[in-house]
Nucleic acid binder design. Structure first.
Lengths: 160, 160
DNA sequence: TAGAATTCATAAGCTAGCTTATTATATCGC
DNA sequence: GCGATATAATAAGCTAGCTTATGAATTCTA
């Protein structure tokens, strides 16, 4: 029950768990011709259409270029589309296409299935607390990255 | 507090957390000329020298080919070495080299730092329970993968 | 003891992360 | 208004996952 035993395991345990979950979710999602990474993007677009790519990348804790490639695939498959912004021609905004609807229905069911499988034996209250703790850790790490990033900020950011 | 809200978040939350942690740990580990993935391998070899590559791959929930590449890097840097097995010439067994010692000391400190940062604000008992739950989930997913994998097993496995 | 099946390590080629650099557009300061 | 600076999206090239395939060595079966 010491901090030491946590030291030993947390960092790498998380990685091992993620590898397993990724493998499992990818294999299941492949039945619908989509990968887990692409699915995550699609689900965010479903939840709030009209986002800019940079906004979505930040929301997903990933780099814009990584998101660009995933969006390419989703567009190729006709599930979403990029539309130019009227007042800023640099910007693409993301929208669902009709063809995504049946897929989204199936994926919703799959998500419930996968979550139930992963969390089997953990009661809902514990599962809920676990989720909250993961979010808290996310916030801790996000802050740590921020703080180590801006060591010598020569100027204030200009706008944005 | 419903199962529904967990459905909404667990699968993708885990991925987002992992991206953040990976980015942070990689950036810190880079100070010592090593990546987080290579570090995980090195730490396992430290903990039990003489393992076969297949054993280690299974322990780390990764495919043997993935491990092969990481071991290549660790060997190139002179931190570990492959030694042939006397009784089975297919097998490589993994051992630390002396050059790894100072690095391992620094990495041990770094691991404590990173874990403390990530788990800040979570008391040790909660952290310990969290770890246990992650391990339980790992086991659930491992079983699920096993069960979906062997649908039509035409023959019993022969040996091993 | 010879052929079939299995296992260990690795190769080739894909997805999804990343950093750094580029191009186009937008905003700020003067 | 114009030049410097900032931002949005993307390109090129790396790491680390994966699947599928291959070569060498081992073990089983008959």
């Amino acid at each position: 029950m010491t901090r030491g035993s946590v030291d030993m395991n947390f960092l790498f345990s998380l990685g091992e768990l993620q590898r397993l979950v990724r493998a499992y979710a990818d294999k299941q999602a492949a039945r619908y011709g989509i990968t887990r990474a692409q699915w995550a993007v699609l689900a965010k677009v479903e939840r709030s259409e009209g986002m800019k790519q940079t906004e979505l990348a930040e929301l997903m804790e990933m780099q814009p270029i990584t998101l660009t490639r995933l969006i390419d695939k989703l567009c190729d498959n006709g599930w979403i589309e990029r539309r130019g912004d009227d007042s800023d021609r640099r910007v693409n905004r993301l929208y669902l296409r009709k063809a995504a609807r049946p897929l989204l229905g199936k994926l919703s069911g799959l998500r419930s299935e996968l979550t139930a499988t992963a969390l089997e034996g953990i009661n809902p209250a514990d599962a809920h607390r676990l989720l909250a703790q993961l979010e808290a850790i996310k916030e801790n790490v996000r802050n740590a990255i921020q703080n180590t990033a801006d060591e010598p900020p020569k100027k204030e950011p200009r706008y944005g």
